[in-house]
């Protein structure tokens, strides 16, 4: 078993509990030991960064310090794209901007903690594709999802701003992972467009247009479901689909799953233990494969 520190993020304990459940199921089956960081706090996300650009840096720094203090292998695995981007931003600013580093060091010292910059923030998708490897995943597939047409939706923050994992314009890791389960991955030009998640509570009208934009292409490509790697995207595309239909007269009915749930199905886990029931647009036949 490979051991990693795990940061579920706020949504992991709330709107994305099904995501959490599926991750908890598949990880041991793939030889991953994800240990939740003790007493972690909110990373700050877009909202706090907009209140004060350095706020999310210090908040994230506490989480990084906790992972570092916990010792051992300093890989911190996240499952939310927003947490991923914000924690990486904190790391990047800590490393690059001297004044930020000084401020963070001072703020952490004030609460009796320190961070020395050794933690690597990684998305679970990256761990699966790189550490476990596609070949190993393929070998473990017990129920190939043959014939299932899936649209991989990456959203903004897996490849943007630039990082060493994904391409900012044309990400491919989830395509490869879904192919490994035997599913058919449809072409999806809007796979890294923004779904408007950060605006859905404040500028719903604008955000709904973005949701429609993403889902319409997935539907036009005849995908049976959209697959995401982020609780923000999942919730936005799932919970607001009815509103999109009402606002634009569309007839979208696309279940929105997490990649971990799709992978779980192919590994032989059941739909309900993977939390497939917990969504606004029912999974329908997708879960009964």
């Amino acid at each position: 078993m490979r051991r990693y520190w795990y940061y579920p993020g706020c949504s992991g304990h709330a709107s994305a509990r099904d995501y959490q459940r599926s991750v908890a199921l598949i990880s041991p089956a793939l030889g991953l030991d994800l240990v939740e960081v003790e007493d972690w706090n909110c990373c700050g996300t877009t909202a706090m960064t907009s209140v004060e650009p350095r706020l999310s840096v210090v908040l994230s720094a506490r989480n990084l310090a906790l992972a570092e203090e916990a010792g051992g292998r300093a890989d911190l695995v996240v499952t939310c794209n927003s947490c991923y981007a914000i924690l990486r931003r904190a790391q990047e600013q800590y490393a690059r901007r001297r004044e930020v580093r000084a401020e963070v060091d001072e703020a952490l010292a004030g609460i009796g903690r320190r961070y020395s910059g050794t933690v690597r923030v990684r998305h679970l998708l990256e761990v699966l594709v790189r550490d476990v490897g596609l070949d190993a995943l393929r070998e473990r597939v017990r129920r190939p999802l043959s014939g299932l047409r899936l649209a991989p939706y990456y959203g903004c923050l897996l490849g943007r701003p630039r990082n060493d994992f994904e391409d900012p314009e044309e990400p491919l890791s989830m395509d490869r992972l879904l192919e490994a389960t035997g599913a058919t991955v449809v072409r999806f030009d809007r796979k890294s467009k923004c779904c408007g998640g950060a605006l859905i509570t404040t500028h719903e009208e604008a955000a709904l247009e973005l949701v429609r934009e993403v889902l319409s292409e997935a539907a036009a490509r005849e995908a049976r479901a959209v697959v995401t790697a982020c609780p923000m995207c999942q919730f936005n595309l799932d919970a607001y689909q009815a509103k999109v239909n009402a606002a634009f007269g569309t007839r979208l009915r696309l279940p929105v799953l997490y990649f971990s749930q799709v992978l779980g199905l192919s590994l032989g886990f059941g739909a309900s233990e993977l939390g497939l029931g917990q969504r606004f647009v029912p999974v329908g036949g997708v879960g009964k494969l």
Binding site: T46, T49, A85, C156, L157, R160, P161, R162, P168, E169, K193, C194, G196, G197, A198, L199, A207, L210
Partner: peptide
């Protein structure tokens, strides 16, 4: 701004 970072990249 939805912080999608397209402008940035």
């Amino acid at each position: 701004c939805a912080s999608c970072y397209y402008c940035t990249v």
